[in-house]
Design a protein around this nucleic acid. Structure first.
Lengths: 168, 168
DNA sequence: GTTATTGCAAACCATTTGCAAGTGT
DNA sequence: ACACTTGCAAATGGTTTGCAATAAC
């Protein structure tokens, strides 16, 4: 976490995700419960994309008194999105994939159709074009989602070891 | 449909979607059935984004002998995607949205979070940047999906008629 | 005559919800 | 004390599947 204490719009960036969530709960008259606390902690332990089910499994490895039920996980994930701590990346249709969206720089994704991997990248250009396009169409842009589809470096390499006639 | 007879990669662009689908079925040893025919016809009657359910409703207005069951609609939509005639736009998670992807120029979307509307736009720049980014990361790009989120012109206008304190 | 396809009813499965018991404030 | 939360079990709802009857080829 940065030591600086500056604010970006309404959001005080010097807070940890846990503090930020507490702040959010307070503003909304919602309560700080051990379950909510456990979930934010686990969610921000590492920075990978995850699905609700990944998180549920992760929580199952926790000592018994910290167990959280499935509905509560779903409810809390929704709250974390509302709080601006998580973002939903809908690249997989059918189930939701989440990623950190707090104190983490704007970025986009490359999605490998072979191994289903998701890779992040950043491009200032994209944002510029986005805003230009939006302006041109009188659209008030608040964000965007770009996913480049294709084959990642590793899968491309693996493929070269097969003959081009090797069908599945 | 264009009168010209030129090919783009493997795809003969002079075919109508219906012909193209027949060709696809033939190559795969699949059969031309009245149900499949009805579905392609209805799907390509107009160029809007649609969900499986929209199509099912549209089919219900057809004379009785052309009725198609729900499972067949889902099965055929999948085939149309495989055939490269349709493309799945996963902007809504939970249900699939389809759009024409045959003889239709590359484009991206603006998604209005207010009215849920989807608007198309085209930008050559985006494709250039996409390829540059992919090259830089040794990623073999085959396509991309960009959705700009925000408020469309009409919803923005409607909003100005409310006081900023008008919550929900 | 084979083999693919259809329609029906039932299954799937991620997510959501009603509700009674529990718990922050 | 008073809401807000939780966990349970059951519901939801888009999509998929098993299977017997049917229809392309």
């Amino acid at each position: 976490m940065s030591q600086e204490d500056f604010s970006l719009g309404e959001v005080n960036v010097s807070l940890t995700p846990i503090e930020r969530f507490d702040e959010f709960l307070q503003t909304r008259g919602m309560r700080r419960t051990p379950q909510r606390r456990t979930i934010v902690e686990e969610v921000f332990k590492r920075h990978e994309h995850f699905e609700a089910d990944d998180l549920i499994k992760q929580l199952q490895d926790l000592p018994g008194e910290r167990r959280v039920s499935r509905p509560t996980v779903y409810r809390t994930l929704g709250e974390l999105v509302e709080a601006g701590l998580l973002r939903e990346v809908a690249y997989n249709n059918r189930r939701s994939v989440y990623e950190h969206d707090y104190g983490y720089p704007q970025h986009d994704h490359m999605h490998c159709t072979e191994c289903n991997g998701l890779f992040e990248f950043h491009s200032d250009e994209i944002v510029k074009i986005r805003d230009a396009v939006a302006r041109e169409h009188h659209f008030r842009a608040t964000g965007h989602r770009l996913t480049i589809n294709g084959i990642c470096k590793d899968c491309a390499k693996a493929r070269r070891h097969h003959s081009p006639l090797d069908l599945v």
